[in-house]
Structures are given as structure tokens and as C-alpha cells.
Amino acid sequence: MTFLEKQTDPTSPMHWRGDMQADYLYPNGWAGDRFFKNLRDKGTFLATRCPKCSKVLFPARLYCEDCFVEIPENNWIEVPTSGIVRLYTFAKLDAHWEPLEKPRCMALIDIEGTDGSILGVLDVEETDEDLTGLPVEALLRPVKEREGTMKDIVCFKPSV
């Protein structure tokens, strides 16, 4: 039994090298299609208002998950591309656990006029100051470079 032996070299047992190939196309979804086309073409944010509980869902959604009702056509509304910081961290490592050149502030932004929020990069230097509640504004890619994905939102900048 190798069970109790200390293994220091993972390649020492006889093995073959495999991989799990997996490539995807992720459609934006029924509501997402409209949200991201609007972001790309008009540079604004869309939300949907639940006809039952009146919550403003952001980003725009097909249904209210609490009331479980479909959002009618006339409940789509344009909302500001600004909000306030609710949660944040200064990340030192990237998704592959490699050190970042400089700390990146990742934040959840409560979008103004809605009951929803969104994950974004906050364009600030690392600080000990509490950034909770900081008013911010979305910076979008130039219109010609937008593709209708989350990457069209470059970052959120503190409002002037």
C-alpha cells in the first residue's frame, strides 16, 4: 500500500497525462440579450421592476425570483450607471494565484435606483480608509470597442 507513504513527487507513480477539454459559448440569455445590447449600443443600464413586489431587479431579469412572476414588457426601465460601494477587497493574487502587479480593488456596487448590485473593478489605490458607501460611476469602453459583455464596463471610478 502506498497509502501511508509520504508522496513528494506527484509524477513519480506511473501515469499518463490527460486533459479535460471544455470550450463554451455562453449566450447572454433572454433578459441579458437586451441588457447587453443596450449597454453596447446606448451605454446605459437597464433594470426590470417586479409587478408584484415592485423591487427593481438589476441587471434586468426575466423573472422575480422571490415572487416567481414574469416581468411584463412595460416594466423595463433605464437606470443610472452610478451607485455606491457595498462590499470590497484589495486582491493581491489573480485567478491563477499569481501575484498581481498592484493590488486590485474588487467591489460590489449597489446600482442607483435599483435593488440590485454588480461585481466590478474599483479604480482606487490601496487604502486603509473604509470605502463602504463611496459613490462611484461606471467607466465604459469607447462605443466602437464595446462587444455586449461585462467587459464593456472597464471599471467603476469614484464620482467627482
Binding site: P27, N28, G29, W30, A31, G32, D33, L62, Y63, D66, C67, F68, E70
Partner: peptide, 24 residues
């Protein structure tokens, strides 16, 4: 399909709930 998995789930669930006459 354009719809996400969540949206497909919602549409099927809503139909079943309407047939049963129940809410969430």
C-alpha cells in the same frame, strides 16, 4: 437557445405552477 438555464427553468416551472394553481 438564447435563454439561460435559469430562464429555461423558470419558464418550465411557471407552467407547472400555473397548471397546479399554486404559487411559490
Amino acid at each position: 437557445m438564447l435563454e439561460t438555464g435559469k430562464e429555461l427553468s423558470f419558464l418550465a416551472t411557471k407552467m407547472a405552477m400555473e397548471e397546479a394553481g399554486i404559487e411559490k
